[in-house]
C-alpha cells in the first residue's frame, strides 16, 4: 500500500522540519510550503506527521 501525503496548506508555516527528518527524502520545500514530490518512496514512518508542529501534514494509507 502506498501512502498519500496530505498537506494542509493553511496550517503549514514552512519550518521544513518534516523535510529534514524524513528518512526517505519524500518531501521538499517549495519556498515556504512543503510539497511531496516522491510519495512512492514513503515508508510511512510517520516522522513528518509526528514532528510537524502545525498539524499541517498527514500520512494516509492509500
Amino acid at each position: 500500500m502506498s501512502a498519500r501525503l496530505e498537506i494542509i496548506e493553511r496550517n503549514c508555516k514552512g519550518c521544513s522540519i518534516c523535510v529534514e527528518f524524513c528518512p526517505k527524502d519524500v518531501l521538499e520545500m517549495d519556498v515556504f510550503l512543503v510539497t511531496a514530490p516522491r510519495p512512492e518512496d514513503c515508508i510511512k514512518c510517520m516522522q513528518c506527521e509526528l514532528l510537524c508542529p502545525d498539524f499541517a501534514i498527514k500520512v494516509h494509507d492509500e
Partner: peptide, 21 residues
C-alpha cells in the same frame, strides 16, 4: 494511519499562534 487530532481541537482555532518550528 493519519492521526485524528482535529476532534480534540476547537473548531477554527488552527493555525495556532506559535512561530514556524
Amino acid at each position: 494511519m493519519a492521526y485524528d487530532y482535529e476532534k480534540s481541537i476547537r473548531p477554527g482555532k488552527l493555525p495556532h499562534i506559535w512561530c514556524p518550528g
